[in-house]
Design a protein around this nucleic acid. Structure first.
Lengths: 116, 116
DNA sequence: ACCATATTCAACCGGATAGTTAAGCAAAGC
DNA sequence: GCTTTGCTTAACTATCCGGTTGAATATGGT
């Protein structure tokens, strides 16, 4: 049920949740089955399933069934509109990919952080 | 009470509301008093005041009192972190400012649209 | 056919959020 | 000092959101 042109509302509110951002980051590396997406988190599988539905509705991922596994893959253009919108404000210089790496490393709330 | 480094959570959920995005777009043109920000919208002044507080907490605007007027101004770097985060995914080509213009024109929900 | 695996759905709960109106507070003007 | 103007706070309501558990559905393996 992903809209043809998901609204900025849908996109930004999908991004507002750290678990969902973490999921996106994971999918950046590889397509994954729902169960595998859920594995690193502490919340229930059902919760992750809902998160994935939200991401799909926002056009940020696609889910396609093959056999009994549902593969989740990043929808590469999903962020485009939002990115256009944001950059319009900041006229930011091109993004430093190292900054991005830092974000991914820093901001992944994979369940509870083990206390070192 | 704007955090020194507002979280992506705060930023994205601030952006998730169309009224707040419209406010940002207005402030892009000029600094404004709260009452003037509220004018084009149908919701109460109190509601707009709260929206502004959310934007300020997310580090997207600053409010400073001069006399009895509180001026709202865009915080130019407020979107930087979020922008970094997003571009990391899409490696989007530089943004077309015309696209952005189109967004602003299209997506401003200033109160109820008059039914022409 | 039966069982295990993969995922969603349904019902529910608690806390956040967007809106309201009414009262409160601060600064300027008379 | 009183009033007006500009804005926030308080109290309340309705809705949304993220989480839970348990049942339901779908596919594959034996």
């Amino acid at each position: 049920m992903s809209a043809p042109h998901p609204s900025l509302d849908a996109i930004f509110s999908a991004l507002a949740d750290p678990t969902r951002r973490a999921i996106l980051a994971m999918l950046l590396e590889d397509d994954m089955a729902v169960t595998d997406v859920a594995a690193p988190f502490q919340v229930s599988l059902a919760a992750i399933s809902k998160h994935l539905a939200v991401l799909a509705a926002a056009g940020l991922i696609r889910q396609e069934r093959r056999g009994r596994i549902i593969w989740c893959k990043l929808e590469p253009d999903g962020l485009r509109n939002a990115s256009v919108w944001m950059q319009g404000f900041g006229q930011f210089e091109p993004v430093d990919l190292d900054d991005f790496e830092r974000f991914l490393r820093h901001a992944l709330p994979l369940g509870d952080e083990p206390e070192t």
